[in-house]
């Protein structure tokens, strides 16, 4: 296992896409220390910014990376990684696990926005909260998360899974506005409350909310009441109102909203054919 600790508090964003198992794998500690990294507009090497220690003999595998300390300015850790593990002890900056293709990232603190954007496979677990655009597409792009799992124990910001195309996002806390916006496929499970505007312009996929939802967009049609819903491997029990939409996009996305926490949605029941 390789451990990285910042030498000092970062003043400017650090672009650290080289902190990932694929780049570390076959290298000695000395080679790892010499990997390039951008501190603001300055090109540095990892050893300039981090204390780097290898816990085992240098020949051991470097597929597990531990990063600890104040990492809120550290961007793009684990970008494009395809295997191995990254353990982040603390809170980390933007674009964690961007375009990830495999492996596991675990964060004990919070992450900034764009965690797991364009992710293809693998798993990200965040014990704290995450920022906006979890598993989303890059600005302007329509290629969101394509596979893998993101699990957040805390809350998430706005536009969770924007342009999501597959995979599973599980948020145990609350989510901001526009969760599942432009969604094409895949599943978002929100165990807490939602700020609303769920699934705007979604064309496919599934959003399940166990908590409170202020209102449903007018471009969704209520179709039935379901006893349970499936989120990846697990079953969640309801009952749920099921809506489909977004009709404005000829979408076939599904919204499952828990009946228990949303008594104000009872008005939809009169549209249900019994």
């Amino acid at each position: 296992m390789i451990t990285l600790t910042p030498k000092q508090r970062f003043q400017v964003p650090v672009d650290a896409e080289n902190i990932q198992p694929d780049r570390f794998e076959t290298k000695t500690v000395e080679e790892i220390k010499a990997l390039p990294v951008w501190e603001g507009n300055r090109r540095r090497v990892l050893a300039d910014l981090f204390h780097i220690e290898s816990e085992e003999a240098p020949s051991s595998d470097n597929a597990t990376i531990r990063v600890m300390g104040d990492l809120t300015k550290l961007k793009k850790i684990g970008a494009k990684m395809s295997f191995g593990r990254i353990l982040v002890d603390g809170s980390v900056g933007m674009r964690l696990g961007e375009d990830m293709r495999g492996g596991v990232i675990t964060v004990t603190g919070n992450t900034d926005s764009w965690a797991g954007t364009m992710m293809k496979a693998g798993r990200i677990e965040v014990r704290g909260n995450v920022g906006d655009y979890v598993g989303a597409a890059y600005r302007g792009s329509t290629e969101g998360m394509r596979g893998g799992t993101i699990e957040v124990h805390g809350d998430a910001g706005s536009e969770v899974g924007c342009f999501m195309r597959n995979g599973l996002i599980k948020i145990q806390g609350n989510v901001g506005a526009f969760a599942g916006m432009h969604m094409r496929e895949g599943t978002i499970l929100v165990e807490g409350d939602s700020y609303g505007r769920l699934g705007a312009e979604m064309r496919g996929g599934k959003i399940i909310v166990l908590g409170h939802v202020p209102s449903i967009l007018p471009t969704f049609t209520v179709t039935s009441v379901r006893k349970r819903a499936k989120a990846g491997p697990e079953q969640v029990s309801g009952p749920f109102y099921m809506f489909t939409g977004d009709v404005a996009e000829n979408g076939e996305g599904r919204l499952y909203v828990a009946q228990a926490k949303n008594p104000h949605l009872h008005v939809y029941e009169r549209y249900l054919v019994t």
């Binding site: 507009n41 597409a137 890059y138 600005r139 302007g140 792009s141 290629e143």
Partner: peptide, 14 residues
């Protein structure tokens, strides 16, 4: 203006 995702994939460093 329309295509930030086009810039994102192709960056020239100073």
């Amino acid at each position: 203006l329309l295509r930030p995702e086009d810039h994102f994939k192709d960056v020239e460093v100073r």
